[in-house]
Design a protein around this nucleic acid. Structure first.
Lengths: 211, 211
DNA sequence: CGCGGGTTTGATGATGCTCAAGCCCGGTGG
DNA sequence: CCACCGGGCTTGAGCATCATCAAACCCGCG
């Protein structure tokens, strides 16, 4: 399926747009393909667009003063990826955005974004999407601050089952804020819950305690 | 200063609005005052408005299955507070919103929000604000996942110096995702850095290590 | 067939939580 | 006016979780 068809399907799924509106919206996007490993953007760049992912999967991450990578987000088909900070301030970005597989994107630059807002149904969809996104971030913050490494992993499995299999384990660990070793151990312990038949639930020494 | 004046000042500071536009916007908000301790909203409520804080300070928090509180956000003068999740889905909220001091708010409900978007300069400001907000959440996520308790505390001091003195310590601890005991110890260790004269900087046993 | 990146496994230690007292201080009622 | 709360903050001791360091392992690829 061509990139624009994916976008079309996405837009139609969440709001009634006329054919004219769809056609207009499409003129605002610029297609772009990336090979696995390619960068859409590097820290220091001033990048002023948002990407809609028609195919593939990307990560955005930062590198702190100590040289450690921190994955902020994964994004796969029909997700959007952009650099909010750089978009608001116009300042150079702090983030790297890299394709993890061969990917097809549609890029929307700032002027394009402004124009797209003239289509009311699209603007509404945009605001809804942003709110949903914000809610997801709130949940992640609470999880990061209060859940154990294992809980965070399980939650990720539930929330993004399709992504787990497509990213290397050490990146998942980085996203979850745990070391690769710890993630490896967690998976091991989950895979052999011994315990009677099926379900695997109810761990033996379950503390049922938060931190 | 009356609540509407605060809003006016806020809006004018970040975008040129005509007197007519300002007047129109103001008709959309409903004032509300709260005493310290009062709730604007409780989990289970379906609340469909966003609050602009003209005076005072509020917290939003959730309570997990184990009964632990998690503070998602503090918000003081000229900040906005709302429940993104509940706003998008219309589903009952997961969050409590409580005033920590006597506070003056201006509430904007959903229809009001839609109408306000008709003022282009206001809509632009709204989008900018949302993006800025998103960027802040990204930073907090990275910090939560990778910084030590002390680093998170210091970052909070820097970012929200005015809030630190206005909220009880155990709530700050909850926001930072650490236990009240740990926060107490961190403050103690920061207050007596022994070390030469003044400034208190350059910790003695600084590890300069991430986790 | 050997290399190299990613994953696993083990041992050790630090960070920060829990539980349990004690303390400080502002408010209330005798 | 003062004794007595009670909530929040502090302090201490022990312990769980998870990071770090180091080595072995696995496997696709040149």
């Amino acid at each position: 399926m061509a990139a624009f068809d994916v976008l079309r399907a996405f837009l139609q799924a969440r709001g009634a747009l006329t054919e004219d509106e769809l056609a207009f919206i499409e003129t605002l996007f610029v297609p772009r393909t990336l090979r696995g490993g390619d960068f859409l953007q590097r820290a220091g760049d001033v990048s002023n667009y948002v990407a809609f992912i028609a195919k593939g999967i990307l990560r955005s991450y930062s590198i702190d003063d100590k040289g450690n990578e921190h994955i902020v987000q994964f994004a796969a088909e029909t997700y959007w990826l952009g650099d909010s900070a750089s978009l608001t301030t116009g300042a150079p970005s702090q983030f790297f955005i890299q394709a993890l597989e061969d990917s097809d994107l549609l890029l929307l630059d700032r002027p394009g974004h402004e124009k797209s807002m003239r289509v009311p149904a699209y603007a509404d969809g945009f605001r809804m999407g942003v709110l949903r996104h914000t809610a997801a971030k709130d949940r992640r913050i609470v999880a990061a601050l209060s859940a154990s490494a294992e809980e965070r992993y399980l939650e990720f499995l539930q929330t993004y089952p399709s992504i787990v299999t497509r990213v290397p384990q050490f990146m998942l660990a980085s996203y979850l804020g745990i070391s690769p070793e710890t993630l490896s151990r967690i998976r091991k312990s989950l895979s052999r819950p011994k315990r009677g038949r099926g379900r695997g639930g109810s761990l033996p020494g379950d503390k049922n305690q938060s931190r």
